[in-house]
Structure formats: C-alpha cells, structure tokens
Design a protein around this nucleic acid. Structure first.
Lengths: 141, 141
DNA sequence: TCAACAGTTTAGAATTATTCTAAATTGCAG
DNA sequence: CTGCAATTTAGAATAATTCTAAACTGTTGA
C-alpha cells in the first residue's frame, strides 16, 4: 500500500536533519520541508517566516533565524552576501555563483561550471582559501 | 616660495569635490583629506567617524554616512559587501577584487589584472552587467 | 513506560547599523 | 553683504538580527 506523500516528506526531512547532526524537532522538520520541497531557492529569514506562518506552521522568527544559521553551519544551506541590508540563504549548496539584480533585490543562480576564475594570487600568509564568491551585478537597461 | 603641505592637501580635496559635482563644505573636505591622504583603505562609517573625532575633526556620524554614500555615487569610493553586519568603503575605485579574512573581518586588495573571470553567461533578459565582484574568503589554518 | 535532563523554542527586550526628521548652519550667487 | 538652497546635526526612528531567561520537548536509560 502506497504511503502518503506528506509522510514521506516528513521522513526525508528527518533523515536530512539526523544526517546533519541536528535533533529533528517539529520546527526544524517543518522548516526543512518548506525549504527543500521544490527546486532551489534564495530567501531571507523574514521571507521563510512569512511563508511558514501563511501555511499554518507555528514557529517564531527567532527560531527561523536560529534554524537558518544551524542549517548553514551543517552545510544544508549557503549564506549569500550581496545586499548590505539583508542576508539571503541559498538551498543550493553546490559550487555556483549568482547574478544580483539591484533593481528588484533578486538573486539568480549561475550554474557551477559556467564560470571560471583564473589567476587567483596566493592567499595572505597563514591563511587558506575557503571559498570564492562571484557576484555579477546587473541592472535593467 | 614653497607652500605648506596642509594648504595643498586642502586644494586637492576641494578640486576632487568640485570635479565630482559636490559642494566643497568643511566636513566633506576634511573627510576627503582623511580618506585619500595615503594609500588605499577599506573602512566603515564608524571607523571613519572615530578617526575624524580622534584627529579633532568636528563631524557627526550622520554626515559621515551621508558623505560616504555621496562619494560612492560620485565614483570617489566603492562600496564592498562581504559582511552581512557592516558596510565597507574602498578608496580604490579601480577594477580589482578582494580577499576577505573572516577571522579578523579584514579586507585585502587583489590587484586588478591578477584575476580573470571567464565563462560569464548572458545576463537575464532586459538587464546588462554592471560589475563583477569576486570575494575570496580565506581563514587562518 | 516514563522520569529526568539536555537541547530547543519562544516572547519580548536588547543591540547594532543605518536612516530619517526637522531645526540650525553654511556656502555661494547676485 | 543678503538670501536662499544645500548641508549638517542631534536625536529619534527603523530594520535586521541577536540575546535572555523561562517554558517546553526529544531522547535516553532504568
């Protein structure tokens, strides 16, 4: 007998959390389901909280902030810094870069292998390269 | 007869402001002198304000914010976004990129021609590329 | 099965960076 | 000089985010 989709989504979320070493609580499960149910997304804490509330998920804004940071630390999300006034989180953790459209404060993925950065100089003494972020700023013309 | 250095610096700052279409007020002059007196710098509004105060320049924090944004609009400064909690301004407006050391929240210039970004895809329809920012995140090891 | 405790969530206060407001001041054209 | 628009300012306001301390919940092991 085929199990309900909702049930499966729950198990997937739980697995994902356990794998990341995070205790699968009700809030983390529900947020994980919202975040990872469809294709990749870029969103702020406020946006995720609004989405949760509008879909009847009971969770506080503080928990959304905590959860986004925990997910980021666990490698489930990537934090993208483009706008000095807000923090975006990206559900696509694969190596890739972004277009940033200032007119509408929106991020668009650039698939990983498309971009190549050449001629990286050696990093400052005592440090090692952790990540290379490329943001292509675009504007309506 | 050789004129005093201070006098010359003042004229230079005034010129720079007039060129940028900004009325050379006392505050803008003094901030320009602090910003551009030596090699290139990365600094926040708070940092510049502290420096001004410590050198006896009378200027409010609000004016420092206003001035940094006006200078940026006029092309005298570049705003660099790397840290979700603060905004850096760079006196080097030439084409170049940055190392960002998270351990100490510090920015280090990577000279312009060293880095090359290849394989940029066409920008989203209706937009054109304005700038390509590369931030190389490094960590102490 | 469930007691107990560490981990988690939460409301609301606190913090931080930044912007706004409205009144005082200043640069400059005439 | 005078007058007015541009600029500066103190302090309030805002926005995003973090903190705090109390309530709650998941898990473990008897």
């Amino acid at each position: 007998m085929r199990r309900k989709l909702r049930e499966t989504a729950n198990e997937t979320a739980t697995m994902r959390l356990r794998h990341a070493g995070l205790r699968p609580t009700r809030q983390r499960n529900e947020l994980a389901k919202l975040l990872f149910r469809n294709g990749h997304r870029h969103l702020t804490a406020e946006m995720l909280h609004a989405e949760a509330v509008s879909e009847g998920v009971k969770v506080s804004l503080a928990t959304v902030y905590n959860t986004l940071h925990q997910f980021t630390q666990a490698g489930l999300l990537l934090q993208v810094v483009v706008d000095p006034t807000r923090s975006y989180f990206d559900t696509n953790t694969a190596d890739h870069q972004h277009f940033y459209c200032e007119d509408e404060s929106s991020l668009i993925d650039i698939p990983g292998p498309d971009i190549a950065v050449a001629g990286l100089p050696t990093p400052p003494p005592g440090t090692q390269i952790k990540r290379v972020d490329v943001v292509v700023h675009v504007r309506r013309h």
